[in-house]
Design a protein around this nucleic acid. Sequence first.
DNA 1: CAGCATCCAAGATGATACTG
DNA 2: CAGTATCATCTTGGATGCTG
Lengths: 120, 120
Amino acid sequence: MEYNVYASACPTRMIFDRLSDKWALLILDRLCPAPVRFNQLLREIDGISQKMLSQTLKNLERDGLINRQAFPTVPVTVEYSITPLGKTLASTVNVLIHWAQDHGDAVLAAQAAYDQRLAG
Amino acid sequence: MEYNVYASACPTRMIFDRLSDKWALLILDRLCPAPVRFNQLLREIDGISQKMLSQTLKNLERDGLINRQAFPTVPVTVEYSITPLGKTLASTVNVLIHWAQDHGDAVLAAQAAYDQRLAG
DNA sequence: CAGCATCCAAGATGATACTG
DNA sequence: CAGTATCATCTTGGATGCTG
């Protein structure tokens, strides 16, 4: 069945909303090359709080996009890794990131021009 | 220069944050095939409020992703259309939307399984 | 029609402290 | 180490009314 993304009741839209989560895509991208531990993510993803990281990881796991594996060390070690499903999404996310890298300057210039028009 | 997306100071990250705006990508996608007027967007994009629509459109225009054109009719008519820069992004967004459509069921299933594990 | 200004409720998030 | 719990805050967004 074909859904209409612009309708809020559509399941695709529900998922699309989730995708626009501030941290989810960033984390997904970070897990893509290799599994990473909790505190390492916390250190590397600048600006995220422990609460948000924990929450976002839980959501991603629930969506089947990442795996959580705990090792019975003392103290416990937890590794997060990307699932096959997550990988299919991550490749798309990567395209988005590249877009941002490639066109960042153009956007910045547009913003400057816009602000200039308002001021002048 | 190569930026680190995981650092909050990076311009790419700033843009990436913007991309994860709840409505921006949806609107961009809607404008892709043809220009649309304000109230038409308001009607078609389910759940968005006038305030959010107005705000998001302004941001998109500032980023150089869409154009705003006012016609001197009475009452005034305003048409929003996508820019060449916006088009390059929209095509990527389209891939995201397709991903959501293609894998929506898989995500829903994963969620159900996750919830099941918790309950049982 | 296409907005902007104001007020207000709700949810998101940060800081801090605590636990297995 | 990898979280959870609680509280304070701060932003987000909806409702409403007004304007060119």
